[in-house]
Amino acid sequence: MFPLHLNLNLNRNRGARLRGLALFSGALALALYCWGLLQVFGAVLEAEDGGADSAPVRPCRTHAKGAEALDYRIDYVPLRFVCETRGGGSYVADRVPGYVNPGAFGFALAAMLLAIGAGYEAELRARRAATPTDGEPRITG
């Protein structure tokens, strides 16, 4: 079994662990979003490549309505490559992997909740430090 002092030390570092996990989760969210941006910008480069084979827009050809695609746009939240068709319609081209948007959202949400938890832990620690064992609050400042 673990010695008692090691177990107490782990409880003292709970806020630091929460902050570290929040940072790691935020980094994963950013990495996933950047991966999706690379996919979208690759589709933009392919769409902007002129020449005799440039109409309809190449990234939009994989869909059944590809022959009707006139232009495209990029939506950043959620991240996607949107093909615009005649008559004002549009559809999403499958350029961004399906795991990017939910994964980035999930990791960003987890990072936010972990950061809130770390702030709450710091507040609890500060309140415990300001209250002595006899129950009388200390005057600080």
Rank of each mutant, 00 (worst) to 15 (best):
L45T: 02
L10A: 12
G15I: 03
L32V: 09
P3L: 09
L37E: 14
W35A: 09
D53M: 03
G66P: 08
N9T: 09
A16K: 12
E68V: 07
D53C: 11
G51Q: 05
L45A: 14
G20S: 13
A67T: 02
R58V: 00
L21N: 12
A31I: 10
L38F: 01
N13K: 11
Y33V: 07
T62C: 11
D49I: 00
T62N: 02
H63Q: 11
N7I: 04
R12H: 14
S25I: 04
P56I: 00
A69T: 04
E48C: 08
H63L: 00
G51M: 11
L30Y: 08
W35N: 09
P3N: 13
P56Q: 02
A55L: 10
S54T: 05
R12A: 12
A67H: 04
S25W: 05
L4E: 12
L45F: 08
A55W: 12
N11Q: 07
P56G: 04
F2P: 14
R14P: 00
G36W: 09
A29C: 00
A29E: 04
P56D: 03
F2R: 13
R14M: 13
T62P: 05
R17D: 10
R12C: 09
C60F: 12
R14V: 00
A47V: 09
L30A: 15
A22P: 07
A69P: 07
N7F: 12
N9D: 07
L10M: 09
R19C: 08
P3D: 14
H5G: 13
L4T: 15
G20D: 10
A27L: 15
G66Q: 08
R14S: 11
G51T: 06
R58L: 02
F2Y: 15
C34I: 15
M1K: 15
L45I: 00
C60Y: 13
H5W: 15
G51R: 05
A52P: 12
N11F: 04
Q39K: 14
Y33R: 01
R17G: 06
R19Q: 15
L28W: 09
Q39E: 05
G36Q: 08
A27W: 14
N9C: 03
L45H: 06
K65W: 01
L21H: 13
E46P: 01
P59N: 03
H5D: 15
L38Y: 00
P59E: 01
V40I: 13
L23C: 08
G26K: 00
P56V: 10
D49S: 03
F24T: 11
C60H: 08
F2G: 01
A64N: 02
L8C: 11
E68A: 06
G36C: 03
N7D: 07
G50Y: 03
Q39Y: 08
G50E: 09
R12K: 02
L4F: 07
